[in-house]
Amino acid sequence: MARLNTADDETVIHVEGLRNAFGEQVVHDGLDLDVKRGEILGVVGGSGTGKSVLMRSIIGLQPPQAGVVEVFGEPMIGREDHEAQQVRRRWGVLFQGGALFSTLTVAENVQVPIREYYRQLDDQLLDEIAAYKVAMSGLPPEAGPKYPSELSGGMKKRAGLARALALDPQLLFLDEPTAGLDPISAAAFDELIRSLQRTLGLTVFLITHDLDTLHAICDRVAVLADKRVIAVGTIPELLALDHPWIQEYFNGPRGRVAAEAAERAAVKETGE
């Protein structure tokens, strides 16, 4: 029986005792985190708590000073480049601004990772792959031959997502995917991530400030504070904890509004 090409390991990302410091300033110290297969893990934390640094450490852009990082059960720190490459092609990354290559069109951007790893594919299939990836990311067909400078912020993020999905990754890193989008686009983007995650069986590591995103699509939430992950769990589990920052984050005025909205959406879904 055919099945989806999902990760085999139960734990997709394993971080233990991570330490990151820039000069005198210590960002992470003894940080532990596990991401399970098939979940959407939201990572939250105040500004400057090192959410992006954590992501960069996991994907190998920021070598940590100490600690263990394993992705798909493979240690990632101090690996030879060609060994790390084998793991890299199994994940996709969406950077904050989309990070599209400005000299290539959207469709060519999507083709870049495929061309890099699978040179034997014929051009026709490459074009077809780019076409359905662009469509799956919710972009209109007209966006294909456009250059990144001709796109709006939301379209850039969708194009970035299409490129992140190019290699059919089992793991997806998203850095603030809904930041800078209007509420309607942000909700549509949440929905897109959720449906792609379900269809493709993805594991998603999602950094966000967006409380609506947390409520709408995250299975679990990891809270970064005091240089480590102080708690991981579903939002109700986190709320049961007596930590002032968590309480303020989820029970502040914005947090309550987002929670109510999520509740209404859930009622509507079950009602139909």
Partner: peptide
């Protein structure tokens, strides 16, 4: 998602 697309 099967929509024809121009690459460039």
């Amino acid at each position: 998602a099967d929509k024809p697309l121009k690459i460039r």
